[in-house]
Design a protein around this nucleic acid. Sequence first.
DNA 1: AACAAACTATACTAAATCGGTCCACAATAA
DNA 2: TTATTGTGGACCGATTTAGTATAGTTTGTT
Lengths: 137, 137
Amino acid sequence: MKLNQATDYAMRAVLHLSGLPYGQVVEAKLIAEEEHIPMRFLLKILRLLTKEGIVESHRGVNGGYSLARHPSKITLLDVVEAIEGPITVNRCLYAPEECSKNFSGQCPVHKALFELQQSMAEHLKRYNFQMLHEHVK
Amino acid sequence: MKLNQATDYAMRAVLHLSGLPYGQVVEAKLIAEEEHIPMRFLLKILRLLTKEGIVESHRGVNGGYSLARHPSKITLLDVVEAIEGPITVNRCLYAPEECSKNFSGQCPVHKALFELQQSMAEHLKRYNFQMLHEHVK
DNA sequence: AACAAACTATACTAAATCGGTCCACAATAA
DNA sequence: TTATTGTGGACCGATTTAGTATAGTTTGTT
């Protein structure tokens, strides 16, 4: 029931970018150093964030990364889902055929877990990176 | 962000026991067959549930397992924690020294994740197995 | 044009975790 | 005393995690 290391790094990277003037481009190397993230691994993570439209990449000399939209429009949920995919608490909720009891329609446990899943997504959606950055200033 | 298979099996096993007259002892073999859980693996899971005081084991001929307390006193959280240990969304929340930013006291992201963690635990605590069983009758 | 600075894409790897099995043993009822 | 049930720990193959490596592409500068 935990987030993985890549997600942790991703949140730190986005928080870092949120602390800069909006639109500013910064090299991965700098983020890696300041946030203590292994450089190669960060690049991989930034590609996922780019693909999901959370950051923009700029290639070539003086390239780097910038936010693709204002920090107030990026939520914790956006970042979690960009790295880990949709939150799925129980496998039966997305692959009923894998439920060996084959019970998914009626099973009260799965219903309860689905509600948990919804509530987690709602919770994560409530935090955007402008808010989060305000607290660190 | 998902529960593992063992937890899924554990919930099914406790739900199964909740459907019997309170105190009734049933062999692991029977639970395994009816709930479609690999027998050996189920035994391992039942040992965890026994250790946490959720079920009671009875050894020897005519032995088996029974609930250690009334289904209304067993929550989803109890079962999840018996199998997976405490819910810890982000490693920094329980091992600040592992946070490579070493930032745990002030980091707004970690604060947000801690709140998520609390809310998840609260959510899971709201469901007991009497409730869950009612819905399946 | 050529070079260096940056990101991209894919493959690879060591270590940990997951899902499960096996085996020798202990307790208990008949 | 024997068959039946659970216990405890070792073991195992597959998958995931966390990261590294290698080769290539884009772009600004000279």
